[in-house]
Design a protein around this nucleic acid. Structure first.
Lengths: 216, 216, 216, 216
DNA sequence: GATGAATGAGCGTTCATTCAT
DNA sequence: AATGAATGAACGCTCATTCAT
């Protein structure tokens, strides 16, 4: 009955822990309390099971990010809300990040992931370009900003083991996450200030090293 | 001797293309023109071979980043040089990024990677904290900044397939990379300006939404 | 009722196409539009389903051969009619021949097939021995003749792919079948002439190589 | 060293006994005293192993039939010699016939079998057409005769279980085989006599039932 | 240094069959 | 009569690794 759900849960955990290849159907069957054959009955193929896990994650992510996007507040509030919501989602679904991180680096599911991410990225691009024409091109173009912020948010989780050694504290503890959020909010502020400035004076000189040239 | 190098090269390629698990000794043997048994003769274990590939990459990376760190110029010049060098290295060693991306997300080699990255991170932390006391703690603490910048640099490569669809251009083309470098330089400028400001007035109010509180 | 027939039809087709082992219950269920479990409800076991297919075929074969045997004409007319009817049956039930061909070569159903064929062979033996005492033993003994004629009729179908390449024409086309029938009729004539001759002079010398000895 | 041979032998036996599908790699490994993986090491695939068994059989068959074809004697002597040699080969390689019988009825190896048989059939056609122009077409055309004789020879083996019940004796005993050979020699004689007659008077009337029409 | 042969363990997948409904 | 879910056993095949040469 709900064996399908239990298989999905077990697969999600194992894919996150050891990766798609190393997560064997046997292990998934064992952890879900199901029969190996039942996995194939419900999902046909390990790859399709993986796709189902992926789809479920992105549905949950969209649900988690939706409220932040729909907020009535200022752009800053919406961006910070978005970033915070993403951090919370990643913190609460550790396997998700690991799965995506591994597969986006080259696997059979890159396309599926890309298809899930595109609408999110596009929404972000729309948000920025509507507020700041300066983000339509140049060094602060919206896609660049979005990828960079996505990178800031996510890399913290990906490199948690390294960060832990570096700072001697647990990056994924509540305190660590709170600090990360504060850092990210500050980076959002930096970005918005720069965009604000650029809107008034389109081609600002770099603060110290005046000789840099701007291009499209 | 020769064969050992060819095995290392083939392994490096295959690990990058398909990952540690999916790269079989048979495939490595075939691509290197060596015998399967010879791989074990030279490297004992597939995991050790992987470690050797990793070590070689990080030695190359250190060599590539060294000049940028040793430069006599301004801090900005050194940071931008570092970022550019990293971008170039990642662009020139595509497999490296994929390997690290996959393994850092949870594998048997996380520790080895962490050990390689730590000195690089520590050097960056030293650089920043010496120049700006403000980076010793708070929302712009050096570790946070380094992870964020590492994330900006690297995510661009990891999410190239998504970026390609988003902007309809090839992110890894020379033009794409040049644009990415400009973007990153600009982000460095933003950061430095903020640190400069913070050094003069330690607790700045956020630009729009004045109600945020700072913590350590 | 309806479903049972559809299962039988689908099974018959698939057994003919790919053989007993390779015809899976799933494939039979798919082709018949039925549920896998329903197959076992109606036939208990795949082997029993196979037996049912076999039984139906032999019932149809008996019906097809009956008229030829019951004919009032000459022995030759009855033999040729039998042969023609068999050719027509095989041509019209291609799966039947393939199934029998495969299973008679060693399978779990050899006995069942043998039981179906025995009465047919016995009828043939009776027909010949009553008409020609010479067929009671010797080189032209009835069982030998029957097996040989059965072989002539059937092998043409079994080796159709080879024959097609050999003669560059389609052996199972109407023309091919007509030619085959003519050939078989001629072989019947040869046999009957020999039996006729042997009845008048029991120990004929072989046409060229006179030194052969006859035995029982 | 000779593990490859032992695998080939075991496979040959099992393919003959139970068929391609039912002969599992495990059973082949067990019978040959080899490891399951070793089978794939030497033959890559079960289908390729089957092809190797097939090729070996046909090489042996060609060797067994060669002397009979090369004989200096009369056409009759050569034909009878050929038939006898085939009977002996089939009797001595029981698995061969079963394998071919099953696969020719529709499998993945029909083409391979057909390719092996074609030269043999062509040699037979050449033999007959050179000796008797009458075999170039018509009811006694060479291909028809060859298929029929092949059918007579082979069906005896294929239907041995049925024949055993029919005559209450063992068809594959030395006595049974000797009798079969005598029967076949007699059939050869019948055919040759008919061809001889037809050569002198091209369009003979059928012995009893005068109304049959001849065609090409 | 290099290789062909060999192996045990385990892979994803499929099978005929059962059972509760 | 009919079905979706479930299962144990087994499938062909591939794996990293070993070893004698």
């Amino acid at each position: 009955m709900d064996a399908k759900q239990r298989i999905l849960d077990a697969a999600d955990q194992l894919f996150g822990e050891v990766g798609l290849d190393a997560a064997t159907t046997r292990a998934i069957a064992d952890r879900s309390g199901a029969n190996k054959a039942l996995i194939h009955y419900h999902f046909t193929t390990k790859d399709e099971l993986f796709g189902a896990v992926l789809d479920r994650y992105y549905a949950q992510l969209a649900a988690a990010l939706g409220p932040a996007l729909a907020t009535e507040g200022s752009l800053r509030a919406r961006l910070v809300g978005l970033v915070d919501a993403y951090v919370d989602f990643l913190a609460g679904h550790r396997g998700f990040f690991r799965i995506v991180q591994r597969e986006i680096a080259g696997g059979r599911h890159v396309d599926r992931i890309a298809e899930h991410m595109l609408p999110l990225f596009r929404a972000g691009v729309a948000l920025l370009t509507q507020a700041y024409p300066a983000t339509r091109a140049g060094a602060l173009a919206a896609p660049s900003l979005l990828v960079s912020f996505y990178g800031m948010v996510a890399t913290y989780f990906g490199y948690a083991p390294v960060v832990a050694r570096l700072v001697g504290a647990e990056p994924l503890s509540p305190e660590g996450l709170a600090h990360h959020k504060r850092h990210l909010a500050r980076m959002v502020d930096l970005m918005l200030a720069a965009l604000e400035a650029e809107t008034q004076a389109p081609a600002p000189a770099p603060p110290r090293n005046g000789a840099r040239r701007r291009q499209t």
